[in-house]
Design a protein around this nucleic acid. Structure first.
Lengths: 280, 280
DNA sequence: ACAAAAGTGTTTTGTCTACACCCATGT
DNA sequence: ACATGGGTGTAGACAAAACACTTTTGT
């Protein structure tokens, strides 16, 4: 057992405050002074598709550190709630979205998809204290407008390339300074997760309203992947994948042209065969 | 903003101890009494392939709660270390394995693969206190024998089906009681991650020694997936996938039969085309 | 009439599967 | 000689890409 001097009580050289045992779960009693105090938060990567581009929800920081910079929405986990509950609460507070109930299949309640993304715990990621943040990924259909704290200037949907760009300025002169903390990394990880997951799952429907056309679903894939897809092959593939889409019987011409069939998300969550992302 | 009364200071009804703001990162100063105290740990799902079956490392708990039950190895995150560092330290302490340096490609240092799995934070998952555990997944080649704390009876490699079985007994009369805490769920998630990830990545080589044959790699896939694969097609596929395997020039007859070429892991991490897992 | 978007059919090209068959060693 | 695992060839099933072509609306 390399680097292990004995069966406990390491870390005394950091001030003797914490007992950092290797084997906490072999029987440490509850003693608040016996473990290092961490703050645990949830941060949210909320993605949607607006005007043919993949956008994320960003909130403006009002105070130091990173005052005035954009950040991902997030907040503390409360003592009595699960991580997923905390993320769902934050999501609801920021967007008014309810989270889709996994027991209700297919997802026809217009709720958002929410899943855990990854956890970020670099000791220096927050200069104020040790914060471990459990990032979550939420996918939502296009929403009216962000309404954060009543302050219209404090939250917005921004294209992810703009939020991840470290140089230059955004579309309307918005300064494109890097996101606060390690949120650029979190956002990049969330986008990558979404990009890969719509390949082999029916997740792309989470970006669509309850009823949608094949063309609208295709524009979701095109926006998330940043590629152009052949409408004919896409149509054949998506309607031929069992359980992906169920026709509602209705049609719409809201996209112009010939009336298109309306579909709802089917019960399938895993697509077989998968949607293939074109090569680079 | 449904359910939101104002721009902060919720949670006072839980005793007024913590300020559970929605927007901690908009400027809360460091005040230890201002956030709920969480313990943060890492738990490890360490997988290997032994005797044609997928095995995980389990340690015996010496004290309450769950005294005498098997659990996953784990421990506290120290105040000055990253989550990955904590997991690598625990892995080294439990197995002596070094973690493969991601800068050294291909992985020829016999190090283990280590990645973050998911985070578990149910308020009741540990009866003693609020513990948020960041689980990690480690994949290792077959190892001599576990050496945990010098006590040979306190750690073992066990087939994952045995550890996940909630009824009956193990192979050598070992009681198959459920794993402690929520570790059965964590193990199941880790196994599922490994099973899906060897499909589209070169991760399966992490179960092999530095040099290995195509047959040995095939037996890894068979053990992890629990299926039989056609040796001829597997050989063609795996040697035909660019960057997956690099021949070393040597041969071996350690499996009997005709001498087989030896390979090292190639630089590729993502396999294209992927290895296809046979249908159920 | 024309543009625009929705769908269908067909050809070509490639990959997966199944299995016949040969190769090189140990006993 | 024969068992054992390693490796190649090949034919049929199947899926994907490319694209010609028809359908149904709005203007």
């Amino acid at each position: 057992m390399p680097g292990r001097s004995g069966p406990a009580i390491d870390g005394a050289d950091e001030g003797g405050v914490y007992r950092q045992e290797d084997d906490y779960d072999r029987g440490m009693p509850y003693d608040p002074s016996a473990y290092p105090p961490f703050a645990v938060t949830v941060d949210l990567v909320v993605l949607t598709v607006r005007r043919h581009s993949l956008c994320a929800l960003a909130v403006r920081r009002g105070e130091s550190p990173f005052q005035g910079r954009w950040a991902l929405p997030g907040g503390f986990v409360r003592p009595d709630e699960d991580l997923t509950q905390a993320a769902a609460r934050e999501l609801s507070e920021e967007t008014g979205l309810r989270v889709h109930d996994p027991d209700v299949v297919p997802a026809q309640d217009n709720g958002a998809h929410l899943e855990q993304l990854a956890t970020y715990g670099d000791p220096k990621r927050d200069p104020r204290m040790r914060v471990v943040s459990v990032a979550h990924l939420a996918l939502a259909p296009d929403l009216p407008a962000p309404k954060a704290g009543g302050d219209a200037n404090s939250a917005r949907w921004a294209p992810v390339e703009e939020l991840l760009r470290q140089d230059g300025y955004g579309r309307d002169g918005e300064q494109a300074a890097p996101l606060a903390f390690d949120h650029a990394q979190i956002l990049a990880d969330g986008v990558e997760r979404a990009r890969s997951k719509i390949e082999y799952s029916s997740l792309a429907t989470a970006f669509c309203p309850t009823e949608f056309t094949v063309g609208e679903l295709r524009r979701v894939y095109e926006a998330v992947w940043g590629v152009a897809l052949d409408p004919r092959n896409f149509h054949r593939k998506v309607t031929g994948t069992p359980g992906f889409l169920v026709p509602t019987g209705g049609t719409t011409t809201r996209q112009g042209g010939r009336p298109a069939q309306l579909f709802r998300a089917g019960g399938a969550t895993l697509l077989n065969p998968p949607m293939l992302r074109p090569e680079v």
